[in-house]
């Protein structure tokens, strides 16, 4: 009788193990195929549009008249580029300087303060950044533009870029701190023992060693910035026009998707066009992501 129960118990255990294993395997498969499903799904939906019009015209034409069936994505692509590049120009130097500060110069209390600050900044939702942008950054940019001879509503490329740069700071900064920390201490010791000062050591040795990592962190920042939606959408103005300056409104790709989902099904090919912009986002972001990560892996191997 006891043997019987033990046997049952063993069988039960085995079945449980079997079940776990197969569930694990299913989850595993899901992750393996998900990126491809994502890509192909978007490609499939945007195929209608791509077959209808040439890819070059779609990407580089400025004619955006969905009702007439004209879909030129150039204004949106240019806006996205403006906002992304500008935000990296703001965020990059700030993050790099701060990362050096936090890894090499900061006192203990600064570190203690900055850890939660970075964490919380990373956790704040996009929409909150948007609200903050409307409250503070929009009036600020409006006044700044006026004083520089570019009167504007405050809802501009620059506003979007400022909000965006603050949003991606925690993301880029965390990677940078990690990258700079992994530079072996022995390298600094070697440089110091040759009579270099701390700053010379950082400038010529630490940053040089960390250079691939720094570039990848910026690349990852760009990919993050390029796809950011709600916060940018709330402050960037959303006017379909190729922007020619930072004090003009823009209309980045993610905002295009988010703003028009309502009408997407009522205009022919509009849904396909929006899926096409999602596809552009997906492809660009993934390329930047892969490139940056490959650079990190490659430079690690080289060492």
């Amino acid at each position: 009788m006891r043997d019987f129960f033990i046997k049952i118990f063993r069988i039960g255990r085995k079945i449980k193990d079997q079940f776990h294993s197969s569930w694990m395997f299913i989850c595993f498969l899901l992750i393996l195929v998900l990126p491809f499903i994502l890509g192909f799904g978007l490609l499939y939906k945007s195929n209608v549009l791509i077959r209808e019009q040439s890819l070059l015209q779609l990407l580089f034409s400025g004619n955006w008249h969905p009702l007439k069936g004209e879909f030129g994505f150039w204004p949106f692509i240019v806006s996205s580029l403006w906002v992304t590049i500008l935000s990296m120009l703001i965020c990059g130097p700030v993050c790099l300087l701060s990362a050096i500060h936090l890894t090499h110069y900061a006192k203990k209390w600064v570190l203690k303060l900055m850890h939660p600050v970075i964490d919380i900044l990373a956790g704040i939702p996009s929409v909150i950044y948007g609200v903050w942008g409307i409250l503070l950054v929009v009036p600020f940019v409006s006044r700044m533009g006026a004083s520089m001879g570019h009167p504007n509503s405050g809802y501009t490329i620059l506003t979007g870029a400022i909000v965006l740069s603050i949003m991606i700071i925690p993301f880029v900064l965390n990677i940078l701190i990690e990258v700079i920390r992994t530079v072996p201490r022995e390298l600094s010791e070697a440089s110091l023992s040759l009579g270099a000062t701390k700053w010379e050591t950082i400038k010529y040795v630490v940053l040089k060693k960390a250079f691939p990592g720094i570039i990848s962190s910026f690349g990852l920042g760009i990919s993050r910035a390029f796809g950011e939606t709600i916060a940018v959408l709330m402050v960037v103005g959303n006017v379909v026009k190729i922007p020619t300056g930072v004090f003009q409104p823009g209309y980045p790709l993610p905002a295009l998707i988010a703003n028009n989902y309502g009408e997407m099904l009522s205009i022919p090919m509009y849904d396909s066009a929006l899926m096409f912009s999602a596809l552009i986002l997906f492809v660009v972001v993934t390329i930047f992501n892969m490139g940056s990560r490959y650079l990190i892996i490659y430079s690690e191997k080289k060492i």
Binding site: P184, E186, L187, E189, A190, S191, S193, L194, Y204, V205, K208, K209, F211
Partner: peptide, 11 residues
Amino acid sequence: GLLSQSPYPLP
């Protein structure tokens, strides 16, 4: 001059 356990040539 300092020589460490394993060589760390500058980058």
